[in-house]
Amino acid sequence: MTILVIAEHNNNTLAPASLNCMSAALQLAQQADCAIDILVAGNDCDEVLQSCSKINGVSRVLSANSDSLKHHLAENMADQVVTLASGYSHVLAPATTFGKNFMPRAAALLDVAQISEISAVVSSDTFIRPIYAGNALVKLQSSDSVKMITVRTTAFESAETGQGSATIEEIEAVADCGLSEFVQQLISESERPELTSAKIIISGGRGLKNGQNFDLLYAVADKLSAAVGASRAAVDAGYVPNDYQVGQTGKVVAPDLYIAVGISGAIQHLAGMKDSKVIVAINTDSEAPIFQVADYGLVADLFDILPELSEALG
């Protein structure tokens, strides 16, 4: 029995989500007493390979190096995973848009189920995952020979790196199947921390009224070194881009501190942030559902409060 972790990266750097995924793999490895390999599928990923080889607990880093894998197109990625899967008991990828794109495709090609977004490992074949926007948790047992798993990154700590000394092995990369073609990526550039790995997040909702007013949030965020998020309503209204969205269908986050500003707290938004350690809600409507999950609530006009807060944080 060996576990395969699929590394998320952009050909230059390893994504933090890979380390959370690695943590889940380490828990599994302990249950099943087995080794862990990491697959780096991409093009000229030397630094990523080096990073992976240093992660504590990794036996081998498999490098599938080809232009066909450079943009992680689902069809080629799935084919690559399928060529390897029969040698493994478990295949894990982070439940990010990276992993969600090709993992179910690979699972179907292998004729096995996928277990989506596990939040805990119970044993080598039994896992816990959230359903209904995180309102319920199911414990389920898999009977498939290869267990295809995506990992909810906020549910697992980041694996430690530095002590690892895994070997790096070249493997044969799949040919381009020719079904799809990469055109471009528009990645939001920001000086602020990434939403999914930030310790503090301040999010805005429809109460912000327009995109310009997010400047008030940014001012506070910069004082706290916080990431900035948003509710679906704010993204739909065009105040901020889609990658800000926190919720059932956006990003799931669990920072030490989550400050919800002008967010009413729909079930779908709560699904993305209710595992935060401390939640603060700022809203004019004292009846807003967000107050039911907030540790600290402030019933007030955000347009008065945000400048004051920024000031108070020096």
Binding site: L179, S188, N242
Partner: peptide, 12 residues
């Protein structure tokens, strides 16, 4: 819609 922003692809 991807985690970091937007991606455009052409598919057959």
């Amino acid at each position: 819609e991807i985690d970091g922003g937007l991606e455009t692809i052409t598919i057959k």
